[in-house]
Structures are given as C-alpha cells and as structure tokens.
Design a protein around this nucleic acid. Structure first.
Lengths: 142, 142
DNA sequence: CCGTATCCGCAGGGATACTG
DNA sequence: CAGTATCCCTGCGGATACGG
C-alpha cells in the first residue's frame, strides 16, 4: 500500500492527538487538557486573561469595565480561580480607598501565548465556520 | 526610558491579545475567540475532536466507547454541533442495520492542530499548576 | 445501530444588597 | 474601591424510554 503525504500527516497528527488524550502521572490525576479546559473553558477566564495580557496590570474595576457584561461577582470568582492556578497575581496596596492590582504571572503569560495561537486560528477560520453554518441551515430546510 | 527585552515581549504580546479581542466584520458578529469557545468549550467537543483526530473515521458507537462517560444524547448533540460548524463530516450508509461514520473535515483537522499546541502547553505546565494550587491551599490555612 | 423525545437535577452565573 | 452574602433562575447535561 502506498503511503501518501496526506496519510503521513494524518498518522502524525493522530499520534499527537492520542498523546494528549493519555493520562500522565503528573499530580493532577486527570487528562491535563480536560483539566485546563474545565478551568479556563468557562465564560470569563479566557477573556480575563486576554485583557490582563494586553496591559501590564489592571485594578479590579478597570478590568471590570473592559470585560463587557461581567458581573462583580463573576469577576471576583474568575480572578480567584486564575489566582489559584497560578495564572494571575493579586497585589493589595494598604491604602484608603483600597487598591488591588492584577497581572499575569509568567505562567499566565505562557498560557496567553498558547491562546493567541488559538485565537489566530479562530480569526482566520471564522468565515469558513460562518459559511458552514449557513450551508447546514440551508440543508435543513430541505 | 530604556526598553528591555522583556518589555518588548510584553508589548508584542499585548498587541496580539488586543487584536484577538477586537471584533472584526466577519459574518459572525462576535469576537471569534468567544464564539469558538462557546462552541468547543463545552464538556465534550474537544474530546470528540481529539478522538476523531486520532483515527481516520469512527462509527457512532465506536466513538461512544472511546469517550469515557459520555451519554448517547450528548454524543449526538455534540456531533451535530460540530457538523453544523463544518468541523466534522457525517456519512450515512444505506444499510441494515444502519451505519454512520464520522470524521474530521479539513477545517476540523486545522482546529485539531491548534488544539494540539494547546494540549502540549497543558501537558508541559500541569505540574506548575498543581504546585500553584497546593501553594494557594496552604496559604489559605493561615 | 443510531438516533429522538421527555423528564429532571443541579451547578453556573446574574441581580441586588450589604461591609471593611 | 473591592469585595462578600444571598437569592433565584436558566440551561447543560444525565437517565430513561421509545422509534426507524
């Protein structure tokens, strides 16, 4: 059987996909991809990281204004979650009125880099997806 | 003011992050990242794509067996969603008993590639995250 | 074998009010 | 300013039963 270049790519990609699905012994005890996604796959985490990544640091309400539609409660919850995972650093200044600054840690920055790759994919392929949806909707009419 | 390499990186990264957050006119009418994440950020989409990407094609129940814990209903719903976005192709064979095969489209494969980058990040940094969580938990005791 | 239909529990997350 | 506390509601997704 002749192996084409396309087949070779498929095999390589398949191996990479399988590798991600395997559960290593790493102290989390879950497939890392699922684990990370459970954290940052929620409604606000990615957005928070992107906004924090676009400047050096932001105060609580500055960030709140930038993330359109987020409630005070959810910003608190989201930031606490990101802080727990070591992606965001929280610094409190002993002033009146209080001032709290958030910024990405180096770990958070490395995640941002990975996310930007992903974001680029989303931007590049958005038209194709829109087209696919339209085609699917049209086919459902029949 | 002297610009260090680190600062330069931060600026570059910040620009990239901002770019992703901007809403282009692309027929979707939303920030693409949020849009894509709303689709594949759910409980099963990513896993389905990874499993479909690790072989050429899979029948419904084959895939069901591989994705641990998924219900019949959610596999149907997930696959339909991925099909709608043009990420997965569905082929029905006119046989008895029925046979349906699913495989990634070329668009789906390109998404898989982006996801693998992300998966690698997750695998590499899983220990750091576990450590951060432990540190945070320890700090909360005090 | 490959779905769809129906029911339902529960967690994510919004709105509002209140504190240090 | 930067959070907590409380209430409540929606919708994701599991279980089960049924259909082509």
């Amino acid at each position: 059987m002749k192996i084409t270049i396309a087949d070779n790519q498929a095999v390589t990609l398949g191996a990479a996909a399988q590798k991600i699905l395997t559960v290593p012994e790493n102290g989390i005890g879950l497939c890392p991809v699922r684990d990370i996604l459970d954290r940052i796959g929620d409604k606000w985490s990615m957005l928070s990281i992107l906004h924090l990544g676009s400047v050096e640091s932001l105060r609580f309400n500055e960030l709140r204004k930038r993330i359109d539609g987020i409630s005070q409660r959810m910003l608190t919850v989201t930031l606490r979650s990101l802080e727990t995972d070591g992606l965001v650093a929280r610094k409190v200044y002993a002033e009146v009125p209080p001032r709290v600054e958030y910024r990405l840690t180096s770990l958070g920055v490395s995640l941002l880099e990975a996310m930007i790759e992903f974001g680029n994919w989303a931007n590049e392929h958005a038209p194709q997806i829109a087209q696919a949806r339209a085609a699917f909707a049209a086919k459902e009419q029949a």
